[in-house]
Amino acid sequence: MIVRYKKPYIMSGNTFYSSLLQEWTKGLLKKESLISVFTHIRDIPYAIVPDWNESEDIIRRMITENKGWCGPKHQLLSWMLEQLGFMTRYRYIPFRWQDQPIDYPESITILFPELPSSVHLCLEVFLTGEWKLIDATWDPLLKRAGFPVNTWDGVSDTIPAVCKITHEPNLTQISHDNQEVRITFVRRFNAWLESIREEEKV
């Protein structure tokens, strides 16, 4: 199912987020602030956490637990960039995990035949008179495994975190069986990413 994220208006006036923004941009010029905000959010370890309740403040939970996926990452990035005076809009990219140029372990690839398609959320920000694609999805320790980790200069486009599929499938129809496969995939994928980070730290 495609989740149409709303702009995180609940953060307006929230001292938690305002203090966080101030911490990440204190003493910096506008361009440096953009880069700092992007980098801090990108560096949050990527993890899909389906157990988080949609009714709770998952963006705050992402910060306090130091993990999160493309949705809350780019919601927070959107809010912070707008606080810095820039217009943003969400960009949705339909994709399949099995189409990504990643050397997955066999425990994951065996799930691909039944794994449903997904939708990636990233961001566009209006800079120098045009919309730029900004993607802060993958944290740096995943680079060794082939994930496209972005470094942003505060001006240019970054590359999307995923390769778009050439035709958008019917993403609203997910069978119960496929949903079980998705849950298994998420569990194994998160565990694999953690193992990559641990190897990188050694």
Rank of each mutant, 00 (worst) to 15 (best):
S55D: 14
H167F: 07
V119S: 12
I102K: 06
G85H: 01
M1S: 12
Y46G: 04
E65Y: 09
S18D: 15
K31A: 03
L115S: 01
E180K: 14
W138I: 01
M1A: 10
A145V: 06
Q75K: 13
C70D: 08
G154M: 03
W97Y: 12
E194I: 11
Y92C: 00
N190W: 11
L21D: 06
M62N: 01
Q75E: 15
K67G: 02
K30F: 01
L127K: 00
D135S: 07
E106N: 08
W192C: 09
D157H: 13
L81V: 00
E198K: 13
F126H: 14
R42W: 09
K164M: 14
N14C: 12
Y92P: 03
S175F: 04
M11D: 02
I48Q: 12
T64M: 13
P94M: 03
D51Y: 13
S18F: 10
V202K: 10
K26G: 00
K7P: 07
T137G: 02
H176W: 14
I48T: 13
L142T: 13
A161G: 15
G154W: 06
T172Y: 14
E23N: 12
L121S: 01
E180L: 15
C163N: 15
P105Y: 08
N150S: 07
I102L: 09
T166F: 12
P50M: 10
H167M: 07
K30C: 04
W131R: 05
T158A: 09
G154F: 05
D103G: 05
K164W: 03
I159T: 14
G68C: 01
F16M: 09
N178K: 11
S175G: 15
V37Q: 06
P113F: 03
P160M: 04
L34I: 01
F126Q: 07
P72A: 06
E168D: 10
D157R: 06
W52D: 10
E32P: 00
W192R: 08
L171E: 09
V162D: 04
T25H: 01
L111A: 05
Q100P: 05
P160V: 04
Y17L: 03
C163K: 15
L123C: 04
A145W: 07
H74C: 02
S195A: 10
E180P: 00
Q22G: 12
E82T: 08
H167I: 09
R91G: 00
W24Q: 01
D153L: 02
L28S: 03
E199W: 06
P101F: 04
T109F: 06
Y9W: 12
D177P: 00
P113G: 01
D139F: 04
K164E: 15
V181W: 02
S78V: 05
S78W: 08
F38Q: 07
I110T: 13
I41R: 04
D153N: 15
M1E: 07
H40Q: 14
N66I: 11
K7M: 14
E198D: 08
P72K: 00
E23H: 11
W69T: 00
R188H: 14
P148V: 02
I93E: 06
L193V: 10
P94G: 06
R182F: 09
W79H: 11
I196N: 05
L76R: 06
E106S: 12
P101R: 07
G146I: 02
P72E: 15
T64G: 02
L28E: 08
D57P: 07
D135P: 02
I159F: 11
A191V: 02
M11T: 03
A47Y: 02
